[in-house]
Design a protein around this nucleic acid. Structure first.
Length: 216
DNA sequence: ACATTAAGTGATT
DNA sequence: AATCACTTAATGT
């Protein structure tokens, strides 16, 4: 894990291969770093974004949230990525459509939104980065839509567990059945039953507050 | 020992 | 697949 005073180093490490040098220098000058703890909320639905976040390390969970506080997992953002929704929301100065929570301890780079437009004109790599980011997010959303439309809940659940394991790089998933139910917009009882089935079929092992995958 | 929270189960829609 | 009502198990104070 990078230490706070090595801002320039950290930025170089995460973005050198994505963006041109002159732009990296501007980023170092104008952006600020923010470290978020595990489970910390970065933005709630309805709040206004003041800066554009880029995830340097760690991972962020982005979900849709309705008025009743129910949610649905949309996609994850990993190192080097930014959130397409936030770009849109920043430029239009409108309220956030989504909620973002840190899945693990993560490092964010916050960019003032005036820079956004300036850099769009000035740097080719920035334009490409933003477009690429939109594309990736869109594909990931299609993936979740596909899962909802075409997979049964048990298949969706297993996919969810695999995704989670890949993302955090561990076979052990520290989530309660309740939390999983919320992400998949289902209910705890149903998830418990399906997990039990998965355990019986030998795909996973159940512990309290923990699920162990057999393999990815 | 008691309260709280997580997980399991049968019955019903 | 969701909801209800209830049980059992694990954990914190």
């Amino acid at each position: 894990m990078p230490l706070p005073n090595s801002k320039a180093t950290t930025i170089h490490e995460s973005l050198d291969y994505l963006l041109e040098d002159a732009l990296i220098e501007e980023i170092i000058k104008d952006s600020q770093l923010r470290e978020v703890a595990q489970d910390e909320t970065i933005i709630h639905a309805g709040e206004r974004m003041t800066m554009i976040p880029i995830v340097l390390s760690g991972s962020i969970k982005v979900s849709r949230e309705n008025d009743e506080g129910e949610e649905l997992l949309l996609y994850y953002i990993e190192g080097g990525d930014t959130c397409a929704m936030s770009l849109q929301c920043c430029m239009r100065q409108s309220a956030s459509e989504i909620k973002a929570i840190a899945l693990e301890k993560s490092l964010l780079l916050l960019i003032p939104l005036e820079r956004m437009e300036q850099w769009m004109h000035k740097y080719r790599s920035w334009r490409e980065y933003i477009l690429q980011s939109y594309h990736t997010r869109l594909m990931e959303m299609l993936d979740t839509i596909d899962a909802m439309a075409f997979l049964r809940l048990d298949e969706r659940l297993y996919k969810y567990l695999i995704d989670q394991a890949k993302l955090l790089g561990t076979l052990e998933i520290n989530l309660t059945h309740q939390q999983i139910a919320e992400d998949l917009h289902s209910s705890r009882v149903v998830i418990s039953r399906l997990l039990k089935q998965l355990e019986t079929s030998g795909k996973i092992e159940l512990k309290r507050n923990k699920i162990v995958l057999g393999s990815i």
